[in-house]
Amino acid sequence: MFNRRLMLQSAVAVGVTSATGLMAETVAPVSPELKGNLSPVHDPTIIKADGLYHLFSTSQMREAPGLIHWRTSKDLINWDFKGAVMTAFPDWVKTELPETRGAWAPDIQFHNGLYRLYYSLSLFGKNTSVIAMLTTPTLNTDDPAFSWKDEGVVLRSVAEDHFNAIDSHLFIDDDGRQWLSWGSFWGGIQLAEADPATGKLKQSVRKRRNIARRPPPGAVEAPVIIKQDGYYYLFVSYDFCCRGLESSYYTVVGRARKVTGPYVDDQGRKLTEGGGRRVIHADMDVSGRFKGPGHVDILRDEGRDYIVYHAYDSENRGRPTLRIKALHWTTDGWPEVRSGAL
């Protein structure tokens, strides 16, 4: 079976953060104004810490200076390259997945005094995969307490499994319960309860729930869950990334009254049956410059919501590039990105 990461090397390569509330109508689209180090950015995740925005993204071993690239911004517009989270894989990776060459699809969350950075390891074109985790008490590298600690494996999948252990996202509910979603191809998107004390699964992976899937060869991956006005919203990416300007990636959303689903779109179609309300798609780009927008994260910041994603830049040899847009809400409670330049 095709895995979206199969093409990632040749392509060169949301986590929910603090604050909730509706997007102010006066917020202008962000993407056209983005400046600085914006590429290559693939599978971005974002969080705000001490007034600074931190963005982490997929990287390969051959990409200096290391694995999981790290960028920062004071204003969401001007971005600086900070470095990499890891200069090499933890020793256990050499045994677990000796052929892996990249750290994919990070997800950054903060809980109980620790930043938890989930990331994925896999073999190209296979569901032999691992979701792992790093932690640090601070993202301030000048703080003596700063240090990324290897927390090992969160969950794994093998060829016999009907899921793929990549593209994780941790959602923390109002009652403190935590839920890990993940998946790509191989049965679609899965959900299981996580232990707040460890950030790892609280229950056997066999008790997971399937919350989104599409009939083959339809692709669904990269889940993000947020909560708004009593509904849970599940964002997922459809079709194919990692093909440069030929990428057909786009993002849809469904909502449910329970975090476990069922998630449905505005037409009542279930996401477990291929439904989904479109949120962002290349044909919304009036400039025609950016292709395959997807693998989103949602930033909730001081009453404003943003969708953070990658897209392939036709004016820069199809390189995966950071994009950020204001996320608005319709009167009937659906998130949307308004047409314009992506």
Score class of each variant (00 low, 15 high):
R243V: 03
D107E: 15
H42T: 04
S59D: 05
A11N: 12
V296P: 09
W92I: 06
N112R: 09
N3L: 14
T331W: 00
T72N: 08
M86E: 05
A19T: 10
S314D: 15
D305Y: 00
D297N: 09
V16T: 12
R5S: 14
T260L: 06
T251L: 03
K270Q: 12
I211V: 15
A282F: 05
L22T: 11
R206K: 14
L170C: 04
D175E: 06
L97P: 03
W104R: 07
L34H: 12
Y53H: 14
L134R: 06
G218M: 07
S247H: 09
L139M: 04
F171Y: 15
T260Y: 02
S287F: 04
I131G: 00
G21M: 02
V279W: 02
G254N: 12
D173P: 05
G230V: 13
G187M: 06
R209L: 15
Y306E: 10
S39H: 13
G333E: 01
V41P: 12
V30I: 15
A282R: 12
F163K: 01
P320G: 00
A64L: 11
F185V: 10
C241W: 08
V224M: 14
K202E: 04
H69M: 11
G125W: 07
K35V: 02
E25Y: 00
W92P: 08
F171C: 06
I131K: 01
K227N: 14
V253Y: 08
